[in-house]
Design a protein around this nucleic acid. Sequence first.
DNA 1: CATGAATGAGCCTTCATTCAT
DNA 2: GATGAATGAAGGCTCATTCAT
Lengths: 199, 199, 199, 199
Amino acid sequence: MPRKDKRAQILDAAEKLFKNKRYHEMTLDLVAKEAKVGKGTIYLYFKDKDDLVFQLALRGHDELCELIRNYTKLEDISFDELLEKVCNEISRFFLGRHALFRATGEHEMRLSAFREKRREEFNVHRRKLQSAIEEILAKGPVRKDIELSVQANFFLGMMRTRDHMFGGNETDMPPIKMLADIFMNGFGKNSNMVFPDKK
Amino acid sequence: MPRKDKRAQILDAAEKLFKNKRYHEMTLDLVAKEAKVGKGTIYLYFKDKDDLVFQLALRGHDELCELIRNYTKLEDISFDELLEKVCNEISRFFLGRHALFRATGEHEMRLSAFREKRREEFNVHRRKLQSAIEEILAKGPVRKDIELSVQANFFLGMMRTRDHMFGGNETDMPPIKMLADIFMNGFGKNSNMVFPDKK
Amino acid sequence: MPRKDKRAQILDAAEKLFKNKRYHEMTLDLVAKEAKVGKGTIYLYFKDKDDLVFQLALRGHDELCELIRNYTKLEDISFDELLEKVCNEISRFFLGRHALFRATGEHEMRLSAFREKRREEFNVHRRKLQSAIEEILAKGPVRKDIELSVQANFFLGMMRTRDHMFGGNETDMPPIKMLADIFMNGFGKNSNMVFPDKK
Amino acid sequence: MPRKDKRAQILDAAEKLFKNKRYHEMTLDLVAKEAKVGKGTIYLYFKDKDDLVFQLALRGHDELCELIRNYTKLEDISFDELLEKVCNEISRFFLGRHALFRATGEHEMRLSAFREKRREEFNVHRRKLQSAIEEILAKGPVRKDIELSVQANFFLGMMRTRDHMFGGNETDMPPIKMLADIFMNGFGKNSNMVFPDKK
DNA sequence: CATGAATGAGCCTTCATTCAT
DNA sequence: GATGAATGAAGGCTCATTCAT
């Protein structure tokens, strides 16, 4: 076992527990046990429980950011393909992380528990993710009358909606291709794409 | 003092507290104090804390449902107008209720804490809201290749996204008119509506 | 339903509940429900919970006392027969009342919870029971070198021992006849009575 | 400060409190304070309050068992002397432990609160104590027509009766010598021992 | 660095008791 | 008298946090 990365071990454990636990159900005892680490050790790497969760959110944003940036570099690919791939990546990422993104949701940051300082730090990471998506969208034939940042946020929002609302089992969810289409064409009848009946 | 509506008093208090508290920060002591009610009284109306929060969510869904149904009855109104009005209503409703809808979000219901029984009851209310929206959407020129239920869910998702992501202060949010447009036309360039630069 | 005796109804309910509940498990809610009486009504007849339990104990002693006195009056009966009958009566009485006699056991009365006043009242009832038994014993060929009060107390003690220790199911208990014999002859070999193997 | 025996400290504190408190009066706050231990520490050593009391009862049985076994080993001693000494030991043991033996009395174990598992464990300890006494009794001229187990149980019962019934102050109690005699000879007139008037 | 036994503030919950009807 | 909705003190228990080893 790689002795080096206790910090990552702890974050991994917390992330795993968040899959079926709420904030107050995810105790540090469980985290320590899951991470195979002493309970006191957690406090060597994180100021307190809130900080642990906070750092977990930051890491999540960074990871997702990284994934998206990989697609920005791709050259010989149509925008449609690109959009679909990115949708896929984000979707896979959200799947199984709802609890984390709930516990550290953007709006959470407005709550009293989070000091000014932390909020700013979070916004830095948040904007990085946002602009990674903006870069993707900028490559496509998107509306110029709506700010890219708004587009990026709704793009993320659609992914979350898909994950949150449709039962958690992938078969109920609208297919990724449909998402990309909805994003571009909305729900108006003038849509020019047709989907087969969902299997 | 108003007889019999202690239950409503308690729910109101909880709803208020949820505006800037997370689940584990909203203690029953605070609820009792806010509701000007003895702590024991809460247990006359709710089985436990989870039940209180759960009932609060149900009430929220029902209230929103009621609001939307009022618009369904309107006759001499264009779909665009209707859509905008409904957007407005929902938006106003979500505003300030993020914590509640976080704590009792749809995905929350999948968590272990919620027994089968409760989940079913929740779904009943959830579907009622969904079909209220479907009825609205059915009046407009919406795509037939996507199930109405999917459209309804994404519609709600857009409202939440607007509320969650944009700082909580209304000035940063995209205007309601824009939301309705995005819903119908998506972000593709063929959009036929133009928005003035956001002030 | 005889409207008159709410007090007895309440005592009956408490007695019944004591069969499988400990003091702190027998809540006044349960008593009220079992007695089909409003919870507040209990306080019309008893000062508080302790008083209710206390009065229950007194009633128990009085009832048992009454039963025993009936045997004192019997004339044409041998002492052996008399002793056996009394044993039977007491045994039947204790059976199913262990929890009550535990909760209000004699030693209980020494505890801080019971004020001087109450203790005295209890002792009055206790002595009444004791002397009822003494009257029985005085009729038989019992040792004169041991005070009757001591004999009476151990007599009661044996009954309780039989009930408490032997599993609660009558088949495991030593037969009544044996009890009477042990009382008179003890466990020394010079005993002159022989029991068949317990079935 | 003595390392590792926090568990014993807690049991000691509970035992002490039981001397003048009933089950529901012995709060864990008090136990913690008396044991000079944090309240949470109790839960490191015991599952819950019931478990604490239960373990206390087991320890009590074991201690008493140990004491009795010491007498079994004695060789040059008459049975009368042996019986008297054992009576003494047991009596001293019971004295001041009534509340404990009430709260965890044998019949208590039949109550719903105690799960099957616990009951069995208790019975193991109970039988050990019983057979320790049986070994003592087997050395004497006791009746063969009554099972030793019955004799052992009534022997214990007598000790408890002595302690429970006679006011808690030793001067009122029948002397130990008398107990041993009663055990062997009962209360019948053919008793061959004579006691001086109790001082 | 790492640990986990110890802590105690604070939570949810119960329940004896009161009192307006 | 009778009731039961309302109360809040107090209990059992949890868990984030500390600190001696």
